[in-house]
Amino acid sequence: MAYETKLDPEDHIYLEPDELIKNLKVSTAEEASAKLRDHIDNLENVSLNVAITGMTGAGKSTFISALRGLNDDEEESSPTGVTETTMVPTMFPHPSMPNVKIWDLPGIGSPKFKAKQYLRDVKFDTYDFFIILSADRFKENDLMLAEEIKKKNKPFYFVRSKIDNDIRSEKKKKKFNEQQVLSKIKDDCRRNLKKLGDPKVFLVSSHELEKYDFQALMDHLEGDLPEHKRYALVQSLPVCSLQVLEKKKQYLRRMIWLTAFGSGAIAMTTIPGLAAGCDIGIVMAFFTRSFQAFGLDEKSLQSLSERVNKPVDELKSVMKSCFANGITVEVVRTFFSTSKVDIAMKVEYVLSSIPLMGALPAGGISLGTIFHLLSKGLNQMADDAKAVLKVAGLE
Score class of each variant (00 low, 15 high):
residue 3 Y to L: 12
residue 4 E to W: 03
residue 15 L to P: 02
residue 16 E to M: 09
residue 21 I to T: 12
residue 25 K to E: 13
residue 31 E to C: 04
residue 32 A to I: 09
residue 34 A to I: 10
residue 34 A to W: 01
residue 36 L to M: 08
residue 48 L to T: 05
residue 48 L to S: 03
residue 54 G to T: 07
residue 64 I to F: 01
residue 65 S to P: 11
residue 69 G to E: 05
residue 71 N to A: 08
residue 74 E to Y: 00
residue 80 T to Q: 03
residue 85 T to M: 04
residue 89 P to I: 03
residue 92 F to D: 02
residue 94 H to P: 07
residue 98 P to K: 13
residue 100 V to Q: 02
residue 102 I to L: 04
residue 112 K to E: 15
residue 116 K to A: 15
residue 122 V to E: 07
residue 124 F to I: 04
residue 142 D to E: 10
residue 144 M to D: 12
residue 159 V to F: 00
residue 159 V to Y: 00
residue 159 V to L: 04
residue 168 R to F: 09
residue 171 K to Y: 10
residue 172 K to E: 11
residue 172 K to C: 01
residue 182 L to H: 06
residue 183 S to F: 08
residue 187 D to V: 09
residue 193 L to Q: 08
residue 195 K to E: 14
residue 197 G to M: 10
residue 205 S to V: 12
residue 209 L to N: 09
residue 209 L to F: 08
residue 220 H to F: 05
residue 222 E to F: 09
residue 230 R to L: 06
residue 232 A to F: 07
residue 240 C to K: 10
residue 250 Q to K: 14
residue 250 Q to M: 11
residue 252 L to D: 07
residue 255 M to T: 11
residue 256 I to M: 04
residue 257 W to F: 12
residue 260 A to S: 15
residue 260 A to N: 07
residue 270 T to Q: 03
residue 274 L to E: 11
residue 275 A to K: 02
residue 275 A to D: 11
residue 278 C to G: 09
residue 278 C to P: 00
residue 283 V to R: 02
residue 286 F to T: 10
residue 288 T to E: 15
residue 294 F to G: 03
residue 304 L to P: 06
residue 320 K to G: 14
residue 323 F to D: 04
residue 329 V to C: 02
residue 338 T to W: 00
residue 338 T to P: 01
residue 340 K to E: 15
residue 341 V to S: 06
residue 354 I to P: 00
residue 360 L to T: 12
residue 364 G to H: 07
residue 366 S to M: 11
residue 366 S to N: 02
residue 370 I to L: 10
residue 371 F to D: 11
residue 374 L to Y: 03
residue 376 K to H: 12
residue 377 G to K: 09
residue 377 G to H: 06
residue 378 L to D: 04
residue 383 D to N: 12
residue 384 D to Y: 03
residue 386 K to W: 00
residue 391 V to M: 00
residue 394 L to V: 08
